[in-house]
């Protein structure tokens, strides 16, 4: 009985991830636009902010983190919109499967498509901003821990505002305050690495935030979706 239930759960999570990846392949703009935004914005900083290596290196962690954060926010708009409009959201909420895992796998697929490319490209852009080599590993790790938190928190805001026609500004007001700690810790990790200080503690804190986000935000997302379809 237990193994059967677990197999059912694994298959529904697999099917959800497969569906989301298929949808992303069918409309690649949803994935590519935020990524292009990330690349272009970061590229503009050396052009507009002066060419002194030392100056660029100082602002590099902040630039990459802030741009990644904005790119994640930009990508969120597509998260529940289509499902809300075509009625699939109602079907999702009527599913007898545990909604926690259904929602979590949807958020995970979104992270795969929206954030993984950003994490992969970040070292290249960091080199362009003359970030010292010591900071590059820390940047990748901090983004890998931080971006899932951003997506999980953003999904709550998106779930709350999906029923509203123009939710952009409201979404920003709702979730940006919650993004601030992630941003501070994320850039803190990179700064510490550049200055050859220990940053394991900061990473552990980010890990704890991620664990908290994974365990609690799907519950909040489900509650928010219920309010939105009501």
């Amino acid at each position: 009985m237990t193994t059967e239930a677990t197999a059912g759960l694994a298959s529904v999570m697999g099917a959800t991830i497969r569906r989301e990846l298929l949808l992303a392949m069918r409309s690649p703009g949803d994935v590519i636009n935020p990524l292009m935004f990330f690349i272009i914005s970061v590229t503009l900083f050396p052009l507009g902010g002066g060419v002194e290596d030392a100056f660029l290196a100082t602002i590099a962690p902040g630039v990459i983190w802030v741009t990644a954060l904005l790119a994640v926010m930009l990508s969120l708009d597509s998260l529940y919109r289509a499902d809300y409009e075509d009625g699939n959201l109602e079907q999702l909420l009527m599913s007898p499967q545990p909604l926690y895992f259904l929602v979590l796998s949807k958020v995970f697929s979104h992270w795969l498509m929206a954030c993984l490319p950003i994490i992969v490209l970040a070292p290249v852009l960091a080199l362009m901003l003359k970030l010292p080599a010591a900071g590059i590993g820390a940047l990748v790790i901090s983004l890998a821990l931080g971006t899932p938190i951003l997506v999980l928190i953003g999904a709550i805001g998106m779930a709350l505002t999906v029923g509203l026609s123009r939710s952009g500004l409201l979404l920003a007001v709702l979730i940006l305050p919650l993004y601030v700690p992630v941003l501070i810790f994320g850039t803190g990790v990179v700064d510490a690495a550049i200055n050859e200080m220990a940053y394991a503690g900061l990473l552990a804190l980010m890990g704890a935030m991620l664990a908290l986000a994974i365990s609690l935000s799907p519950l909040a997302i489900v509650a928010a979706l219920r309010i939105s379809v009501n």
Partner: peptide
């Protein structure tokens, strides 16, 4: 135990018929 058919057809237009139904089956276990 309930099958609900709402106003909106709950069909994602980018997916094929089989893909839509496959996810629906999975979501119902």
């Amino acid at each position: 135990q309930v099958f609900y058919l709402g106003h909106a057809p709950a069909i994602n237009r980018s997916l094929s018929a089989a893909e839509n139904l496959r996810w629906f089956c999975a979501s119902r276990g």
